[in-house]
Write a protein that binds this DNA or RNA. Structure first.
Lengths: 352, 352
DNA sequence: ATTAGCAGTCATAGGGGTAGAGTGCCAGAA
DNA sequence: TTCTGGCACTCTACCCCTATGACTGCTAAT
């Protein structure tokens, strides 16, 4: 049995051409076509030998005996990691994204627009995970007593986003007590991270409990409740253009599309998946099974984190068929993430 | 040429059986099958004569020469208006809807749950239009100055729903001026209709302008802006289970489904359509073209308004294929609307 | 008014045959 | 050793044809 050759230059080049052609045509690539396309002046027979090697190594596979070959997940992975040559983005597209993002009022609208733009530019689905309230800046807080000992907390974050929350108050407070607590928080913490605010308060109270007035301890308790991130996950991933994905499902077998659709709208799963991309900088790609979700098996996810003040706060990207035009999509997602970050930074205003 | 006979008892009965069978089987009904099913001891040949009459009258039609007949829109209309015998709803379903609706915290969650329940119970898509903020009760208002002369308006409506809105303030106000304005509004108008509040203010100011202090006139101006319904239509129709509709599209021709999907998510169109149902009491049905929207041509919409304090404030319903089981769907939509109304009334609390 | 019978229409499913694309392998050329 | 032409083989996709069966409308008889 002959030893498998390492992947030489020629084999890599052929793999690259094969993947490119498969992405473009959507059909298994045969030796004849590959010989023509590769520009190496080799006969189909020679190509066949190389293809056979590539198949042994697990980079390509044939759906049946008399069909051409198509890339496996490892094939796509190798292609993306070391063979891909990205294409520069059309200037007009850049301009449109920047303009559309620039004209949005609230940061919520801005992120929604980003999702829509991604979907329109790619004819696939756009995904944007909202920043966790936790990681945005504390700007202003206000307490409003409701009936039955409940309190309405109004929290304004750095991007002028307004969050409402109703909490059960530990005891009855007078309006002026609440006002005092709010004033204290607004002066002391404006501009800080919300998570930081929570942790600082927690820390200080436990340190100096005995020296604090009951009022301050109470205020701290309310604030803890108010800033508690629990139960704060409504519509945290904005999906646009999901219907576009229908076109990539083979006709007559829509089950894959259906379960993809259901998974996409399963907030928890998607948040978890997107969160895995927030740590690493640059563009992240999940190909087929790599995501670990059954429903995403035949789809790829291209994502990038977007940042406010150099801190990654959310993730955006695109989902589409495994055979998507990565050389176009990757720079597009990268750019969009940067423009969204820039637009958000621009929106960040000084505290009230 | 023989005169067309009026629709006698027998013809009506046959139409009813035909529609029922077509809804159940989804395929054109032939004379043989109809003769068997009708229980009238008539031969297929006789049935054929009657069917021919029904076709002349425009109630049924045949897709091609050698196929059976299926109902036209008029056929469905006649069936629904005068032939239909509704089925009582399964007790367990009633209980589940009531329980699920009862366990929701906010009225937003409640309406979302209603949409989901409708979709699950019917395997079609559920639709719920949110009450216009305009038509809900005024409970409490608060003004909060932001930077650059903008004001944050916090409006709490009768169902303890919280609405935020940022307005451009006509001039700079001090915190106490704003407080005074809010206090005035809260005392004077608590419990009234929001629309009423707006109109009353508008009216009073124009009546007695010269006798009012500048402060009051300013407060009125702010309030006008704050309660202005313009630009208040984000996600006003909650759609759930839209993917279910895919199953009813013939395989291989998904274009109708695609354009339906897009129309459904076209907020403006849907709001307008749902609003047409808010006036009349009871269940309203649009069959096929009756809705006037191209994309809804082969679909039916069954709706009913839901009420708070006997005033219709929103519409809910179901969208599905024209051949849906109306005898089950109609009472279901009716019931759900009543239960949603009851749950909302139960949630309505006295002003702060 | 109803029915049986009959001729005619049309969609659908299945079988058979073929074209075409592609492969693996081998022997010979470079 | 590397490459190539040739050949046998495989498998899909497509087309054509036919058989089948579910209908209809019409007519003549009951």
């Amino acid at each position: 049995m002959p030893k498998l050759p390492p992947l030489n230059e020629r084999a890599q080049h052929l793999l690259k051409v094969l993947v490119e052609r498969y992405i473009h045509e959507g059909q298994p690539v045969g030796s004849r076509a590959l010989a023509r396309e590769a520009g190496l002046n080799l006969s189909p027979a020679t190509i066949r030998n190389v293809m056979s090697d590539l198949e042994q190594l697990g980079f390509i596979t044939a759906p049946h005996t008399s069909a051409g070959r198509m890339p496996t997940v490892s094939g796509y992975r190798l292609f993306i990691d070391s063979l891909l040559t990205v294409k520069p983005i059309n200037d007009q597209v850049i301009r449109q994204i920047r303009d559309d993002l620039g004209h949005q009022e609230s940061s919520g609208d801005l992120l929604e627009t980003a999702s829509r733009l991604l979907s329109e530019a790619t004819h696939m689905a756009g995904l944007v995970s909202l920043p966790k309230r936790e990681s945005s800046a504390f700007n202003h807080i206000e307490f409003l007593p409701l009936s039955e000992g409940r309190l309405l907390v109004i929290l304004i974050s750095g991007q002028q986003e307004i969050h409402n929350k109703i909490i059960q108050s530990p005891r009855d407070y007078t309006a002026s007590e609440l006002q005092a607590a709010a004033n204290f928080l607004n002066h002391r913490f404006a501009g800080k991270d919300i998570r930081q605010v929570r942790e600082t308060i927690l820390h200080e109270v436990s340190e100096t409990r005995e020296r604090l007035s009951q009022e301050l301890i109470d205020a701290a308790a309310i604030t803890q409740l108010a800033l508690d991130p629990q139960g704060e996950r409504r519509d945290s991933v904005l999906i646009r253009g999901e219907i576009n994905l229908m076109d990539f499902s083979e006709i007559g077998n829509l089950e894959p599309f259906r379960s993809l659709f259901e998974t996409l709208h399963q907030q928890e799963d998607m948040i978890q998946l997107m969160d895995r991309c927030i740590e690493s900088p640059g563009v992240q790609i999940f190909i087929g099974e790599e995501s670990g979700h059954k429903a995403l098996d035949h789809w790829s996810l291209v994502t990038s984190a977007y940042s406010i003040n150099d801190q990654a706060v959310g993730v955006l990207g695109v989902i589409g068929p495994t055979r998507m035009a990565y050389e176009r999509i990757i720079p597009l997602v990268d750019l969009t993430a940067k423009l969204v970050g820039a637009a958000l930074n621009h929106k960040t205003l000084p505290p009230l």
